[in-house]
């Protein structure tokens, strides 16, 4: 059971929002779609959800065109708040559940379960508009997967959540994955993507720069991030062979970006000189760093 996008393009007259996009998501996988604002993430989601037509290409779910599937297998959390401000929390969840064809008994159990899990017991009879931004986000989240869809799309699910609630959500996402749910999500917080995603697609101005596993993406760059304890001045470090860039972390360790992984051995010899060395760590670049490198943005 997979989602498959083949050569998907979306054009608005003279503007191309998504260009020749290809990726596949397997059953039970968490897939990240990342890119700057305006990269085409929401447009892609809307095409998958059949809220917008594709200009070219095809989107399939389990071998069938997405337009022909039962819409109740889909769940969606929009980027912006999408709940009824005047409706009470419980009433709202009942409405969305009923709309998804859930039976009252099952619905009640699910609502109780998720309200408990997201710590909303005291708010269940409050109007949505009276809730904090974070609690509204939690209600909306529950509404999006209350009916246990087979495929869940989360557009910026961590937006507006504090670290505690973010953790709650991460656990919930992993729980849903365990239940066999396939999840596609976007986020500007790369650490979350790195933590949750099995595979990802990196978008820039509607075009895919990379699609595959996180490890494959990292391998493209190799282990070029060297953190080392050294008393040498940065200017001297920059002169070392194979060093592209020098920085410092919060602990004062030098963080060297290498041209290539192969320089690491020689540098180890240089820093240790056969002696004990407090820190020498060779790592892959973080997703955040790769994103900046690939997309060329000053911020994400």
């Amino acid at each position: 059971m997979t989602l498959q996008l083949e050569k998907v393009t979306k054009r608005y007259r003279d503007f191309t929002a998504v260009q020749n996009l290809n990726f596949t998501i397997s059953k039970g996988e968490i897939f990240g779609l990342i890119g700057q604002n305006g990269a085409g993430k929401t447009t892609t989601f809307r095409m998958i959800l059949d809220l917008q037509d594709t200009t070219e290409g095809i989107i399939m779910w389990d071998g069938k065109p997405i337009k022909k599937i039962n819409r109740d297998i889909l769940g969606y959390l929009p980027e912006e708040r999408g709940i009824f401000p005047q409706m009470k929390v419980e009433e709202q969840l009942f409405f969305f559940g009923e709309l998804r064809g859930m039976e009252k008994e099952t619905l009640k159990k699910e609502i109780d379960f998720w309200i408990m899990r997201f710590d909303l017991q005291e708010k269940r009879h409050d109007k949505a508009e009276t809730l904090s931004k974070g609690n509204q986000q939690k209600v909306q989240l529950i509404a999006s997967f209350l009916h246990r869809p087979k495929f869940l799309i989360l557009d910026e699910p961590f937006s507006g959540l504090d670290p505690v609630n973010m953790e709650l959500l991460k656990n919930a996402i992993l729980f849903l994955k365990e239940q066999g749910m396939t999840i596609l999500f976007s986020s500007h917080q790369m650490d979350n993507v790195e933590e949750l995603c099995d595979h990802l697609c990196l978008l820039k101005r509607g075009e895919s720069l990379f699609s595959g596993s996180l490890l494959d993406l990292k391998k493209q760059y190799g282990k070029t991030k060297l953190t080392v304890h050294s008393d040498m001045a940065d200017t001297d470090l920059e002169k070392l062979s194979g060093v592209k860039h020098v920085g410092r972390d919060r602990d004062g360790h030098a963080v060297l970006t290498l041209e290539d992984e192969s320089y690491a051995r020689a540098l180890f010899e240089h820093f240790s000189n056969g002696q004990y060395i407090e820190k020498f760590s060779l790592d892959y670049l973080s997703l955040h760093e790769i994103f900046k490198e690939k997309v060329g943005a000053t911020h994400v």
């Binding site: 959800l49 809220l51 819409r71 109740d72 889909l74 769940g75 969606y76 929009p78 912006e80 708040r81 999408g82 709940i83 009824f84 401000p85 969305f96 709309l99 998804r100 909306q140 509404a143 999006s144």
Partner: peptide
Amino acid sequence: SEKGSRALEMLLVSV
């Protein structure tokens, strides 16, 4: 109001 509150997007996934 539904469109402005983005609730419509949630609804249109289902209907």
